Every structure is written in structure tokens, then in C-alpha cells.
Amino acid sequence: MNGFFLYANEPQDRPKLPLSQSLPYLQTIEHDALILGEGPTKVYVFIDPYCPNSRNFLSLIDENSKMRSKYTYYFFLYELKRFNSAEMIAKIYSSSNPLDALKRVMIQDQNLSDTINPSVSGKIAQISNVAQTLDIYKRPYIIMVKREK
């Protein structure tokens, strides 16, 4: 008797920390964010520089002045293992202007020749630790903090 089993990878609900518990973690890395926008509502975004969805999201924000006036985006670079972007993340954070470097890589599809500053490894590790604590598993991963009235 020949046969086989077929298992489907069903999406599973992943329990998330409520915002009241997540926010203190996010605030510990806020100073490491690449910030775009001036709006009153904070939006924390975890992206991978090689992820097509992350690239589309950053392009959308960069092109839309209305979105940048309503929200302040805090971008954190966090590697999706399948893209092998650790070196590029380090190059972006090592750049003299990381936000400009991020745009050059993700929007203009340029490569960076910047050297990697070893001091960025701590920043990258801290962001990674927070992302793992919050169970951030896809990119872009967006957390919006609504302003209180």
C-alpha cells in the first residue's frame, strides 16, 4: 500500500502583547529609529531592506506628504532571514545619513559601499531583541500608537 500525507500550513493566531505592554519595549529602541514624517501619531515599523513589501511601504510613505504630515514613522531594520540582509542593515546604520541610505537602498535600488561600523552591532541586537520579544515575524510590521484626545 503506497500513500502519502499532505499537511497544510494553516495560519495560526499568534498571541500578541497588548499595546500597553509593547510600548515600553518600543520606547527603549525609539532613539535608534530612522524617522520619517512630522505627524502627531506615532507609527513603529519593522522593515527589511530587501523585502519587496517593505520597499513598497517605504516608497508609499516617501511619496505621500499627507501621510508624513499625519504620522511620524519610526523605522527599525530587522532582518528576514530569507533575504540575508544583515550586512546591508549594518551598512545602512553605519552610514553618515542612515535615512538617506535607507531610501537609496529601498527606493532607488542602489547598493551601498559604506564600511560597517562595529558599534552598530549593539543597536541591531537591541532592535532584534525587542522584535523577538514582541514576536515580530513579518515585514513590514506596523504598530500604530493612536494619540489620546
Score class of each variant (00 low, 15 high):
38 E>A: 08
38 E>G: 08
38 E>K: 12
39 G>F: 01
39 G>A: 00
40 P>N: 13
40 P>K: 15
40 P>A: 13
40 P>C: 03
41 T>P: 04
41 T>A: 07
41 T>S: 08
41 T>N: 06
41 T>Y: 03
41 T>V: 15
42 K>Q: 14
42 K>T: 11
42 K>M: 11
42 K>W: 10
42 K>I: 06
42 K>S: 15
43 V>D: 09
43 V>P: 09
43 V>F: 10
45 V>W: 06
46 F>A: 10
46 F>M: 10
47 I>T: 14
47 I>P: 04
47 I>W: 01
49 P>D: 02
49 P>H: 01
49 P>S: 01
52 P>L: 00
53 N>H: 13
53 N>A: 12
53 N>I: 02
54 S>W: 00
54 S>T: 00
55 R>M: 05
55 R>V: 00
56 N>W: 00
56 N>I: 01
56 N>M: 05
56 N>Q: 13
56 N>Y: 03
57 F>M: 12
57 F>Y: 14
57 F>K: 09
57 F>L: 14
57 F>T: 09
58 L>V: 08
58 L>T: 01
59 S>W: 02
59 S>N: 12
59 S>H: 11
60 L>Y: 11
60 L>Q: 11
60 L>W: 08
60 L>P: 00
60 L>C: 07
61 I>Q: 06
61 I>G: 08
62 D>F: 12
62 D>I: 09
63 E>W: 05
63 E>K: 15
63 E>H: 12
64 N>S: 14
65 S>Y: 09
66 K>C: 01
66 K>G: 04
66 K>R: 12
67 M>F: 15
67 M>D: 11
67 M>P: 00
67 M>V: 14
67 M>L: 15
67 M>R: 12
68 R>Q: 15
68 R>N: 04
69 S>R: 11
69 S>K: 11
69 S>C: 01
69 S>N: 13
69 S>Y: 03
70 K>L: 13
70 K>P: 05
71 Y>V: 06
71 Y>K: 07
72 T>D: 01
72 T>C: 06
74 Y>E: 10
74 Y>C: 10
75 F>N: 08
75 F>S: 08
75 F>Y: 15
75 F>E: 07
78 Y>S: 12
78 Y>Q: 13
78 Y>C: 10
78 Y>A: 11
78 Y>R: 10
79 E>A: 15
79 E>L: 06
79 E>G: 07
81 K>Y: 01
81 K>L: 07
81 K>A: 09
81 K>F: 04
81 K>C: 02
82 R>T: 02
82 R>F: 01
83 F>Y: 14
83 F>M: 02
83 F>L: 04
84 N>A: 09
85 S>D: 08
86 A>K: 14
86 A>V: 10
86 A>F: 10
86 A>W: 03
87 E>P: 03
87 E>C: 00
88 M>A: 08
90 A>R: 14
90 A>Q: 14
90 A>M: 13
91 K>Y: 04
92 I>Q: 02
92 I>H: 01
92 I>K: 06
92 I>C: 06
92 I>L: 06
94 S>E: 05
95 S>L: 05
95 S>E: 07
96 S>F: 07
96 S>N: 13
97 N>Y: 04
97 N>T: 11
98 P>R: 07
98 P>W: 08
99 L>G: 05
100 D>T: 11
100 D>I: 07
100 D>W: 02
101 A>P: 05
101 A>N: 03
102 L>G: 01
102 L>M: 15
102 L>D: 05
103 K>C: 07
103 K>T: 06
103 K>H: 03
103 K>W: 04
103 K>V: 14
